[in-house]
Design a binder for these strands. Structure first.
Lengths: 188, 188
DNA sequence: ACGAGTTTTTACCATATGGTAAATGATTTC
DNA sequence: GAAATCATTTACCATATGGTAAAAACTCGT
């Protein structure tokens, strides 16, 4: 669980005893490839932190196409936070792209740790903030052409090209699989 | 300043006296169309809350083209928060698209209010979070075609079509001005 | 190792968007 | 109010990407 500890320490000040308390409130979840962590239409009940593997957020658009909204990899927080906070149904799936190992907080523990750890509320909010920044910083830039977006994707997620299905990457980049396949060919 | 009060109250609990304290730490800034609130290359020193008008975040890409990254309208927070927090140079300009009236916090006041108002730290972080969600929720969806993106834009910002230069909207949507002009024609 | 299923590549043509340029329309300045 | 500047529209052709379909390459379970 060192990864989670490092992640928290980089964000806020918290002592050893408090870290142990945080850890005591978590559980480890192993997800097989393709399994869901949370689903569209349901109220998110848990916050995850990815220890190993890659997850993605995805949804179905009005044409029934499956669209990848984001990738979340090791060392990052995973939750549809607006809906988690508001107790409203999520509009996306959080799905494992590979086998994953995840630290899980229940809603109760996630919130109640604020009562026992001074500053947990602040740490929580900063973790969520950081998670959002990551997402927006890495997400494809709409004013770039498809090839440039793919090259940036490779820089942001160097290990993904061979681990993640082309279709997931294509919908993330906003192109068809065929186009992405052609782009890969042109790059070679 | 009712707008700012409402905004804060919707986010956290804070009493009348505390609100007055917050307000006493702010200044009102009037920006003329095209003026900058902050600039690329400089360390952001202020947090703004827009009372009237529309601002945009923009930058120059490696081809020298001016790209609009986001619009921020009335009732929303405006700041390049990652760089504000890290004391690092911003990579974008925050520019007035129309004449604007803005509530301004200096960095000192923004941070030190946490010492006098219990819970300000949490409110601060939630305001920033909400600001980020707004931005990502409204930003154009890369898997949609240009016409769909423009129609969504109109829903998100109904008052913008005639107030904001076409070039700004085009680069926000990831199309050329000519394409956007053609799209407008097709919609009519 | 085989076959069924899945994923990726290729090919062909249709279409949307880009690039360049010029014409029109709007706004500012003197 | 005329000239100058800036913003928007239109036109033309080039190019990138999409849609459909099929072939090829992988994967998985037996």
């Amino acid at each position: 669980m060192k990864e989670l500890t490092d992640y928290i320490l980089q964000i806020g000040n918290i002592n050893k005893q408090q870290i142990e308390l945080v850890e005591s409130k978590t559980a480890i979840l192993e997800l097989k490839k393709d399994a869901y962590f949370s689903e569209a239409g349901l109220i998110p009940k848990r916050v995850g932190f990815i220890l190993e593997g890659v997850m993605r957020g995805c949804y179905y658009n009005n044409k029934g196409e499956e669209i990848t909204r984001c990738f979340i990899d090791e060392g990052n927080l995973m939750v549809d936070y607006p809906n988690f906070e508001a107790h409203t149904a999520s509009s996306e799936y959080l799905q494992a792209c590979t086998d994953c190992k995840i630290v899980v907080f229940s809603r109760t523990d996630w919130d109640q740790l604020s009562n026992t750890i001074v500053g947990w509320e602040v740490i929580k909010n900063k973790m969520v903030q950081q998670c959002l920044y990551q997402k927006s910083r890495k997400s494809p830039v709409i004013s770039q052409d498809a090839t440039t977006r793919y090259l940036s994707f490779l820089e942001n997620y160097p290990s993904f090209a061979n681990r993640i299905p082309l279709a997931y990457i294509a919908s993330y980049l906003g192109v068809t699989q065929q186009s992405l396949s052609r782009i890969r060919k042109n790059i070679r």
